[in-house]
Design a protein around this nucleic acid. Structure first.
Lengths: 361, 361
DNA sequence: TCCCTCTTTCAAAGCGCTTTGAAACTATTT
DNA sequence: AAATAGTTTCAAAGCGCTTTGAAAGAGGGA
């Protein structure tokens, strides 16, 4: 405690009341006279009284904090997708008087951190990021009795835990079919890392569409890696300079999609006219131009869009709800549909798509 | 505390020792027999004992947590620069057993949060992000007695507080002179928001170079906004389509620099050959291609480079050091020089830079 | 007036840890 | 054997809050 800060004892002395009454008055208990309560609140504000967090935690057993574990690894590092999610969650925490506790650790230490969170009662719950198939964290957290919510899902038999996810499979199926409808047949899939569960679903959606339309899959058009800008650039450059290039790209994030755009720029190709691109758009805040006059202009990318920030908000709400709910409450599971927005990066198939074409006059 | 978790009392009963001795044994006090200590540690591991965080905080007055306040506003939201910094800081915290506590609040509530942090002793120190000129947070934190370190500086008379900053002025002067040396005379400055202190310094560096070389400034070439991708795109498009376009761009971050690249691609211009670009590169992790074979390849952007993640690490170290240091210890101040790396986006001035040029064969 | 109920306040006992000051035990010296 | 010093352990008192169970005060009915 900062030196000289006023604590409950001192405040109650000043008021000529017992600590009990003061505590109750401030915490909204009904059995305290409204006149007394007003007096207490006034004095608390005047003396700038704030209850010690650790003392309150110790007494109540509640930490009023939510933990987020961030793997230190290269992939799934603190990336823009992640931090936008956090920003959304943080808003909700602040609103409900919770703290957000972030721990950056090597992946192999993640389980330890959860155990630590649970037994040291540092947090009341955690958000699980980037679930893999059959992620060991779910059974661990269940056995620890620590409330949690998963951003994403672990497998199709969404079993006994709460999650919030986007219907990635349907979104990618729909986007693929949209490109088919535009006449495209060779569509590159620039996917995220396939160990991440959501990437697998996206691929399945892409495959679903091919199967439904009877278009054969070409393994040479499917890629998976961290969703960073240079990845998109590298893949696009390689494909577009190679033989039999694709006429469209389906990209897992706007970051690699920007890389694809860059590669096309270098080759003199124009998005929409020469090559079509659809990106999954998490509505990342740092890519949005400050809205001039309110509404958003016509989007650049044709995209499957779902705000990851909004997902962060909702995940936080679900978690707080579960923390207050009885332990046997049924898990909450939400599947969101991505919005499909048409921007400037898609167009009908052109007859001749050569490489190093002269820029159209 | 999780139900059934073993606490100090239980552990000491099991061992047949007093809580005092067990606590001292685990905390490395010298006055405990090494044999006893070994026995205690073994039992603690076996029973999976972990001291309660809040109880320890309450008893010691130390929170073992560092606070970061993130304004909810549009600019200086959780952006990639910010989160890379956090990742670096988080590594250091984890290493020293500290927690990172993040609070997302509206800017006008920031002072309240600091007061709260201090009087509720939730954190032992804070990191101040994005200082403005004469930032009110510095006197506030000083008066609260809460240790802090500033990422950046508030004014040139770097007074009585600890900070870590990059020599932005020199970096931008040097980059501008580099472009002058290449023959460029009309150089656009795509700066960050000028209320941020660092943006002012960058502008001054740009102006220094002009003055030193006797090149007149053109206010029509200077811009300031949030460092997002569409900003660079918008400015570049406007300038390059206008009369008397610049031949080079000096950009405050790789994000808007990517926007500039995109605009150039749309106009059929090639970076380096047609237009030169130098960006300030914070070494953002999500823009780095995974290093194949260890070393980093030839960089795309010619850039002033300084790892913001490394800055996060160092800032955390400085803060932890200050927390342990006596209150009257002199502040720590570090000024880093940015590295200048030559990539593919700069080249000598071309005679004729038209617009909508045909892509070179 | 007395008794009963309802409202309002309080004293005291934790929550689980650290830390002070003292006690018990050992080893060394007189 | 007694005194001294050094080592090792402990009982007890907090840290600042919440919460239980009880006491005091107020109001109403007999």
């Amino acid at each position: 405690m900062a030196r000289g800060a006023v604590n409950l004892k001192r405040l109650s002395q000043v008021l000529g009341l017992s600590p009990t009454t003061v505590s109750r008055a401030l915490n909204g208990f009904p059995e305290v006279n409204e006149k007394t309560r007003a007096r207490v609140i006034e004095a608390a504000n005047r003396l700038n009284y704030r209850p010690s967090a650790s003392a309150a935690s110790l007494a109540t057993g509640k930490a009023c904090a939510i933990g987020h574990v961030v793997p230190l690894a290269e992939h799934m590092m603190i990336n823009p997708h992640f931090s936008d999610f956090m920003a959304g969650a943080g808003e909700v925490y602040a609103q409900f008087g919770y703290e957000m506790l972030i721990k950056v650790v090597a992946r192999e230490d993640e389980a330890d951190v959860y155990r630590d969170f649970a037994s040291r009662s540092r947090v009341d719950g955690v958000v699980v990021h980037g679930p893999a198939t059959n992620d060991p964290r779910i059974p661990l957290l269940n056995s620890l009795g620590l409330p949690f919510v998963v951003h994403g899902r672990c497998d199709d038999l969404a079993s006994d835990y709460s999650w919030l996810d986007v219907n990635n499979r349907r979104a990618f199926r729909r986007a693929t079919e949209f490109l088919f409808d535009m006449g495209h047949r060779r569509i590159a899939l620039v996917n995220g890392i396939e160990t991440m569960n959501f990437a697998g679903r996206r691929r399945r959606g892409y495959e679903d569409a091919h199967q439904a339309r009877g278009v054969p899959l070409d393994a040479g058009l499917i890629f998976g890696a961290d969703m960073v800008e240079p990845y998109g650039h590298r893949v696009a450059k390689k494909l577009l300079e190679g033989d039999n290039p694709p006429t469209a790209f389906l990209v897992a994030s706007v970051l690699p999609a920007m890389g694809v755009i860059r590669a096309m720029g270098e080759l003199g190709l124009k998005a929409g006219a020469d090559i079509s691109i659809i990106a999954f758009d998490d509505d990342l805040s740092f890519l949005q131009a400050p809205s001039e006059g309110g509404g958003r202009g016509i989007p650049f990318f044709t995209a499957m869009r779902s705000s990851i920030r909004e997902a962060g908000r909702r995940a936080a709400e679900i978690l707080l709800e579960r923390i207050d709910a009885p332990a046997n409450a049924p898990p909450r599971q939400e599947l969101w549909e991505a919005e499909f927005v048409i921007g400037t990066t898609t167009g009908p198939l052109r007859e001749t798509v050569g490489r190093h074409r002269v820029f159209p006059a």
